[in-house]
Simulated scan of single mutants.
Amino acid sequence: MAVLFAACSTTPTTTSLLDQTRADFMAAQSTPSVAANAPLEFKAASDALDRANAAAAKKDSLDEIDKLAYLAKQKIATAQEVAKQKQAENEMANAGRQRDEIRLEARTAEANQAKSQANLAKADADAARAQADAAANSARDEAAKNAALQQQLADLQAKQTDRGLVITLNDVLFNVDRAELSAEGMRTVQKMADVLLQEPQSAVLIEGFTDSTGSADHNLQLSQRRAEAVRNALIGLGVKSDKIATRGYGEAFPVASNADAGSRQLNRRVEIVLSQNGAPIANRH
């Protein structure tokens, strides 16, 4: 009995309020947000509970123990309330940040879309400018080409007729009474080829003529051979053969009388007729 009495006398005194306070403290302690969001308040609650536990250990009066336990319970409640408020504030802050992030993402998406549209508009403008520049360059090139062609035709003394453009090769471009082109004749034919290569749609008719000296049969054959010589020279310079026709007229269709040497020289000629826009070349009448 003495031993039992001694054991009971060393057991710390407690009260139901202190037990509730200890339970409240354990619940608060097991909630991470309390220590995280209300560290000072939770420390104050812990210190107050330690004082109540110390009073119980010293077997102070029940009133004193309950008084200290009540104070500790209030501080635990305060810590929990502060933690709740801080948690709510944090959640509101997080919601605000999320809202700001969403708004920023939306503005960024709008900015990116606007930038993309601006880039597309710039690309369209650049393409249009490039197309305009290309058209302008093409027009300048075409104008330069036409100017060069007109100059070449002027150098060849081309004349516009109802049958088309006519370029005349004089007798001096051939060897005497022969169908071979002289060196000067080849240079003239080269100029002619340059023109024809720039006018791929033009049909070409090469017509040969002689004066009235000699037999009609000889003159007809000579005029044909000279027309063929010019045709062969043009083909050798790159002009397509299927666009060139020849015809020898001999002493027919003179452009001057055959009464003197000067007139007869004018009649000894080769005329090259260029059709316009691929139109057929009309026959001589």
Rank of each mutant, 00 (worst) to 15 (best):
K43S: 15
R99K: 04
L266I: 05
N175A: 11
A83P: 05
D260C: 06
A106E: 13
Q201M: 09
A106Y: 13
D162G: 00
L181Y: 00
E199W: 14
A259L: 01
I167T: 05
A134P: 05
S257G: 13
T161G: 04
R129F: 07
A179K: 03
A111T: 02
N119K: 14
L205A: 08
I65T: 13
N232S: 13
L222N: 14
Q221L: 15
V172W: 07
R247L: 11
Q160H: 09
R107W: 09
G164M: 11
D126W: 03
L153E: 12
A229F: 02
E184F: 09
K59E: 08
A193D: 00
A28G: 10
G96E: 00
Q190M: 12
D19H: 08
N53G: 12
A279P: 08
L222H: 13
S16W: 08
G278H: 04
H285V: 15
S46V: 01
T246L: 04
G236I: 08
L220C: 15
I102Y: 02
Q85A: 01
T188S: 09
N90M: 06
K240P: 13
A83H: 01
T31V: 11
L222W: 10
R51Y: 06
G238M: 04
C8Y: 07
K73P: 02
K191Y: 06
A154W: 06
L173E: 11
K43V: 15
L156F: 03
Q160F: 04
D211Y: 06
N37K: 09
N94P: 00
F42S: 03
A127E: 06
D217F: 02
S138R: 14
D133W: 09
R103M: 05
A183T: 03
Y249Q: 05
E41Q: 15
N90I: 07
E207G: 15
N267V: 03
Q151L: 15
Y249G: 02
T210D: 05
R140P: 03
V195S: 12
Q117S: 13
D217Q: 11
Q74A: 12
A48N: 08
A193K: 01
P39F: 11
Q150W: 11
A35N: 10
K67C: 14
Q113S: 14
A106F: 04
K115P: 05
A72Q: 05
A48V: 08
L40W: 07
L237G: 02
A23R: 01
N170E: 14
N175C: 13
A6Y: 08
T246M: 03
F42H: 05
Q190T: 04
D24V: 10
A127Y: 04
D171Q: 12
R22F: 08
R264C: 13
P254G: 05
T31E: 08
F253W: 05
T21G: 01
A229M: 09
V176D: 10
R97Q: 03
V204Q: 15
D63V: 06
G214V: 09
A55M: 06
D162P: 02
I76T: 09
V204F: 15
A72S: 03
I65L: 09
K73F: 04
A23P: 00
L266A: 07
L197H: 02
A245D: 03
E81Q: 14
R231F: 06
I244N: 13
A57R: 09
Q74S: 12
D47R: 07
A256W: 00
I235W: 01
D211C: 14
F209M: 01
I167Y: 00
D171V: 08
E64T: 15
A136H: 10
I281A: 13
